[in-house]
Design a protein around this nucleic acid. Sequence first.
DNA 1: GTGCTAGACTGGTTGAACCAGTCGAAACGC
DNA 2: GCGTTTCGACTGGTTCAACCAGTCTAGCAC
Lengths: 272, 272
Amino acid sequence: MEEARNANIADTIFVELRRKILCGELKAGERLSGERELATKYGTNRNTLREAVRKLEQARLVTVRHGQGVTVADFRKTGTLDLLSPFLQASLDGSEIAHVMEDILEPRVLLLEHATRLAVRRADKGDIERLTDINDLLIAAFDSGDAGVVARGFQRWLDALIDAGHSLIVRWFANPMLDAYRDMVERYPSLWVLEPSFPKHLRDVIRAISEGNEQVAIDATRAYYMRVDGALRGHLQPSSSRDADVSPELPAAGSQDSESTVVPMRRRRSPT
Amino acid sequence: MEEARNANIADTIFVELRRKILCGELKAGERLSGERELATKYGTNRNTLREAVRKLEQARLVTVRHGQGVTVADFRKTGTLDLLSPFLQASLDGSEIAHVMEDILEPRVLLLEHATRLAVRRADKGDIERLTDINDLLIAAFDSGDAGVVARGFQRWLDALIDAGHSLIVRWFANPMLDAYRDMVERYPSLWVLEPSFPKHLRDVIRAISEGNEQVAIDATRAYYMRVDGALRGHLQPSSSRDADVSPELPAAGSQDSESTVVPMRRRRSPT
DNA sequence: GTGCTAGACTGGTTGAACCAGTCGAAACGC
DNA sequence: GCGTTTCGACTGGTTCAACCAGTCTAGCAC
């Protein structure tokens, strides 16, 4: 299955049922078969299956009531951001994915602006050093055009930026989005926005943080992500159909001077 | 226990262990006793206890590895907003609660601004009707000074506002914060910010939504919450010690004309 | 000392039995 | 005929006891 780390039977069933619910195969309000029947269906015993159901319950994907059975919950209404990553992986409705992606962009900028704001206010010397180190690595990777390294390094940059804000709330809000980002990079390794102003953006933000200049940091962040998101939006519309396959090759980084390049996702079907 | 709805043993143990982790009684990296030992300790059997552990794992509060045991995870680093409500309930560190509450205020305003923005753009006739109905109820309750009804009705208002935005992302982001809000109102029923401009705020927002005037809606929201949060912040500092007990009586609503009134929380200990 | 092995942990899985809510249909009483 | 009661057939909840399967370590063999 998709969970490479743990090959638990219970985990596998949990992921499978979650996928079925998130992709609409199991609709809200629908009742699952009894635990005994499900256990047989998945070729395991009741105890193991129950562990999977407990996880579904914890993820608010089902509600369990003694004597009545297990019913699928309306995750669109009661879910949380934890579902973001598995939802993007499971959804079969390309149009809805496009809508969700579109709806992520603005909250993402708001989050990053807020994270940057807190970083300016609260970053200590260690935070700035960490950001500087990652910045150096990122710029080197960017100049050499290694998109994969940049993508992975950027995760560390975001991590460090959020840590620099010293806010539980921002960290907790960011985690599910970082997870989704991680998954996207892993599943669609060719998807990466190469914005020529990327190194300048990083440098500007770090300077603003170390100088304590809040407005400059925010403005730099907002301006950068408006460019990136603009490019992303342009490529999100045409790829609303699921198996769109456009320009799969990864362009070299830094070769453009005024326009950013985006490599649209390419669907990688996992065997079922 | 605190979970009135389901008296499951597994659930009870889950809540108890979660509390211990969130309040720092079990520290990150610490290893839990073996499942067999834990089961004995909680007077149950291994299967039931395992269901509790599965939930902890799903909530990212512990990591379980075959052959090694169960170790407490660093929820401050890996958690999500789902933990917000239980964390506020469990934490014993009044100072940290105050910090977290302070850190919530700005994201909350950003979220509400964004939700309002989307509502202006996307609300349909049904959404506006629903908001108008709730608005009427709220204003009636506000004028009659029934703080409890206002508090509960305000949850429905927020719900309707978020629904009007038709955004999965905003809904999923908001849910944990609404949960936390619900808990706070329930546990500290005397905590409520009575802002004289509340009815005007509601009316302004609804008018702006139905007229499609985005900027007005945002400005009204921002201005209102700056006042509310200002009042809240003023009362958050002194009540940083846990058992602060200040002016427990609930003032009548609408009696002030230029200043909002806040009733600080009063601790209601649940039996253990 | 180094390397291997055996054992004592750990969680993972299994099957069966029984307890306990919930619901509906059949039986009963009117 | 209709309302009420009851019982049985579901559902999940809990318990037990055994065994499988990783992981680590102490101690043995070299």
